Simulated assay, not measured.
Amino acid sequence: MLKHNTLKQAIAADLEQAFSQMGFANPSVAQLKDACNVSLRTLYKHYPSKEAMVIAALEHRHVRYLEFLSQDSGSQDIHQQGVEALQATFSKLAHWMSTNAPHGCMSTSAVAAFPDHNEINQVVMKHKLEVRDRLGQLSQRADLATQFFLLHEGIAAAWPVLGQTAVVEANHALTIFMES
């Protein structure tokens, strides 16, 4: 059973990379199979539809992103609190965007590609709400978590156009917001 789960997780990781690079509309199942380096039968055994493949990729990315945000969190939680912790998180987001999502947020792209698919929308909603809650925890201001989340999402949405400037401006807006 462990081998089965390991293969399934490896396929999900490969699907994440494939959708990140090719988007959701363009890749055929045959291209996804090739990207995962498995047979069509094996791909369909684990993920019986393209939508199931999208969900697996999104869930895998969700775990990776939350783990990425948590890296070095021990020292960050001790030395950085409130605004400093959010600014550090926004810097991490810039690194994530430049290395993992230069074309924009994969979750947002999935909703745009499958607007009426309830399960995909639920996976994206779960991801976004957990990110929002994480920002509330980091800032020690759960009451402002949604506002911080909007800055986070603004960085991700503007990244393809503004790059690092999106982070600089979000940090500036955060400082002004917290001073008022």
Score class of each variant (00 low, 15 high):
E84M: 07
V161P: 00
A170E: 03
R141N: 07
K50T: 09
N118V: 14
Q147R: 06
A158I: 03
M178S: 04
V83A: 05
G23F: 08
D133C: 10
Q137Y: 13
D14L: 01
F24Q: 03
H60F: 12
L162V: 01
M1L: 12
V63N: 06
K92L: 07
I155G: 01
V124T: 08
F149K: 04
C105L: 10
G163R: 01
H117S: 15
H4V: 06
D116G: 15
A158R: 04
L93K: 02
E59N: 13
H95A: 11
A113F: 10
A157Y: 02
V124Q: 08
M125G: 03
S75N: 10
K33L: 07
S109E: 13
Q9M: 06
H103E: 12
S180G: 14
T108N: 11
A18V: 11
H172W: 04
F24I: 10
K45W: 09
A35Q: 11
T42P: 07
R132T: 08
L15M: 12
L69I: 10
F177D: 00
L43W: 06
K126T: 11
S98G: 06
V63L: 14
L151T: 03
L86K: 02
H127S: 10
R41V: 14
G74D: 15
M178Y: 09
Q71P: 05
V54W: 00
V161I: 13
Q71K: 15
W96A: 01
K3V: 00
L162M: 12
V111L: 11
H117A: 13
L2V: 04
A156E: 06
V111H: 04
P102Q: 08
E51H: 09
V123R: 03
L174D: 00
S180D: 10
A112R: 15
A56T: 02
K3I: 00
H127Q: 10
I11S: 03
W96F: 07
S91N: 14
S20R: 14
L69M: 15
M1F: 08
V111M: 11
H117I: 12
Y47K: 07
T108I: 13
V111S: 12
Y65P: 01
W96P: 03
Q81A: 14
A170F: 02
P160L: 05
Q31W: 06
T99K: 06
G163I: 05
E169F: 04
R61T: 12
T89D: 02
K8Y: 05
V123A: 15
L2E: 03
R141E: 07
R41I: 14
H60M: 12
V38S: 09
L58R: 03
H127E: 07
S109P: 00
G154V: 06
L138P: 00
L162G: 00
V161G: 01
S75I: 15
N121C: 13
F24G: 05
H4T: 09
F177M: 09
G154M: 05
R134Q: 14
D14S: 13
V168W: 00
A113L: 09
V111D: 04
N171R: 03
L150Y: 10
V124W: 02
N118K: 15
D116L: 12
A12L: 08
Q140K: 12
